[in-house]
Design a binder for these strands. Structure first.
Lengths: 226, 226
DNA sequence: CATTGACTTAAACGCTTGTTTGAAATTAGC
DNA sequence: GCTAATTTCAAACAAGCGTTTAAGTCAATG
């Protein structure tokens, strides 16, 4: 009676439309980002997706499992894009260390790009923070695995900024993630603050802005104390 | 039967202990930040606070009203501290424009300080983002009023960075808020990433770090496109 | 000492939640 | 074109939610 909700990570295998699952994921991504995981009811979600109430439990097993599947889809895609850009930058440097600005671009561009090119994964960052306290334990474990991917960037940055102690590199990378985060969080506040002057419309311009800012922060002089 | 939950903003007036309200606010602040507004039930909250289930509705009127009261308490305190530091910096500049670094310090220090000195308001920033989509409409309106306080900083920064177009100042101020935000969000990830090397322990060191980073970002060269 | 008011308490309220069910509809394999 | 597996559907489920109620406690007041 029950369908295996775990195994079916593959796509075209079952000949079936595989449509409903994607529709649900897209709607969940949108709503979870707009509100909160626990603030979105399955009735609201399924209605927005145009599917039956029971569809979520049938295809994913539970609401929690839906969140995990959603997070997995987003994380895999984002990390893959980041890793690719970083690898390309390293190859461009011919075995040497790429300049800070290019490492930053590899870190930041995929997230910005996805946030523009629409729906899927668009608001990935926004629920990372909440998943930590709100979501199921399995989601939290996945977040920790996420850290592994950031390590590559920490390493690359440490090599490009040899005058900085290691822990300072970690801190500044952390701040960089915060800046990235701000692209999905509180954009409404920025729009209000600027009287509509600032908006997420021109991808290139926004990307350049973020990269300028983050690069400057990473390259800031180190006024050490402790 | 019902007590006025609106008027009693004063403190020592009623002779009564005024204890329960504060206990509830403190517990709510902690839990709402750890999880999410809608993920914390009143039963969980009142049990953590050690008060009766009905206490929230009696003292605040509703769960929504509790959130608003909580936000108000935090926002007032934080904005007051920021405004005072900015005013002092401006006085120190003798009517002129304070250096960027001092404006940044005025913006950033209060939040960092509160995050160390404990409980009250400690996690203020963390629920700002969520309140926008999750919380009641009244909370969202308060967030918009919040913007007014940031305008003072935008103005001051624009004067200190006259070569930047106005909208760029807004963007960079927005990023600065994101960096600040990262102090409350994803700290667990930073600890994991750094293998425990980076932690929120030394206030002065963390403050210097944040100010360095944000100042450098604000003063970054402007590579304009659009 | 009785009375008033603010506060606390346990129990219950109606309602929404995530989930399950069993039958109907759809699709694939032969 | 039949069979069997898969997917959809409306209805119901128990559990948990925010909220209300009415009786209870306690301190201060007249």
């Amino acid at each position: 009676m029950k369908a295996g909700a775990d195994i079916a990570t593959d796509m075209e295998t079952t000949g079936g439309r595989q449509d409903t699952k994607e529709v649900i994921l897209d709607a969940a991504e949108k709503l979870f980002a707009e509100k909160t995981y626990s603030a979105v009811s399955l009735r609201e979600l399924t209605q927005a997706a145009g599917v039956n109430l029971a569809a979520v439990n049938y295809h994913f097993g539970s609401k929690d499992a839906l969140l995990i599947a959603l997070f997995r889809r987003g994380a895999i895609e984002l990390n893959r894009a980041r890793a690719r850009l970083l690898r390309e930058a390293e190859e461009r440097a011919g075995g040497g260390t790429p300049p800070v600005r290019e490492i930053v671009a590899a870190l930041v561009l995929p997230a910005i790009r996805y946030s523009f090119t629409s729906t899927r994964l668009a608001l990935y960052n926004q629920f990372v923070a909440f998943a930590r306290g709100d979501g199921p334990a399995e989601a939290r474990e996945m977040l920790d695995k996420e850290v592994g991917h950031l390590q590559r960037f920490a390493l690359s940055l440490a090599r490009a900024l040899p005058h900085l102690p290691q822990h300072e590199v970690y801190w500044r990378l952390h701040f960089a993630m915060g800046v990235q985060h701000s692209l999905y969080t509180d954009m409404k506040r920025l729009e209000t603050l600027s009287g509509g002057l600032c908006q997420l419309d021109d991808l290139e311009a926004v990307a350049a802005r973020v990269i300028d800012y983050v690069t400057a922060g990473l390259e800031a002089p180190y006024t050490a104390k402790g």
